Amino acid sequence: MGLFSGLLGNAGAVELADVEAELAAFLADGEQAEQAFKVLRDIIVFTNKRLILIDKQGITGSKKEYMSVPYRSIVRFSAETKGHFDLESELLIWLSSTNDPIRKTFSKDSNIVAVQKALATYACR
């Protein structure tokens, strides 16, 4: 995925070797990354045990938040595609312990469909 594409909020697949190297200290025994998508500077990682949302913060992106979401905590999710006047698509994920959903914004519908499909695969087991 190119820099310009990333700045526009396009999601693209990420090399799993790169993700596993970054997450080595965070993964549980026997856990492995199976799919990963990059949105802007953030990364959405699907492991065989949970969903990990990596939020890179600050100008340099050196400060990071790693939000871990067990698949069993996902109550529902939706993918809203863009329309004629909307320039962005949005993925919403509701967790059992919160009222407000986690929001991720995309600029291409095809990319949000790939992420939604992965979410359906892992959360609906």
Rank of each mutant, 00 (worst) to 15 (best):
I52H: 05
K56A: 10
Y66T: 02
A36N: 02
E15S: 09
A17H: 11
V45F: 07
R125G: 06
D18N: 10
A114L: 15
T81E: 10
F77M: 09
L3C: 06
I44F: 08
G83S: 12
R41I: 09
H84P: 06
E88P: 01
S107T: 08
K63I: 08
Y71S: 10
I102P: 00
L7W: 11
C124R: 15
R72C: 05
S97H: 08
L119W: 04
Q57T: 13
L53I: 14
S96Y: 00
E65L: 12
T47Y: 00
I93N: 03
E34L: 14
E22A: 10
I102F: 14
A25N: 09
Y122C: 10
Q35G: 06
F37I: 05
T60E: 01
I52Q: 04
I112S: 07
F46S: 02
T98P: 00
L51M: 03
D109P: 01
D109M: 02
M67L: 11
S97A: 11
Y66Q: 01
F85W: 14
E20V: 09
E20D: 09
Y122K: 13
S96R: 11
E88A: 10
R72F: 04
A21K: 15
S110V: 06
R103Q: 15
A28S: 12
Q116W: 08
K104Q: 13
F4Y: 07
L8T: 09
I74P: 00
Q32T: 06
P101W: 14
F26Q: 09
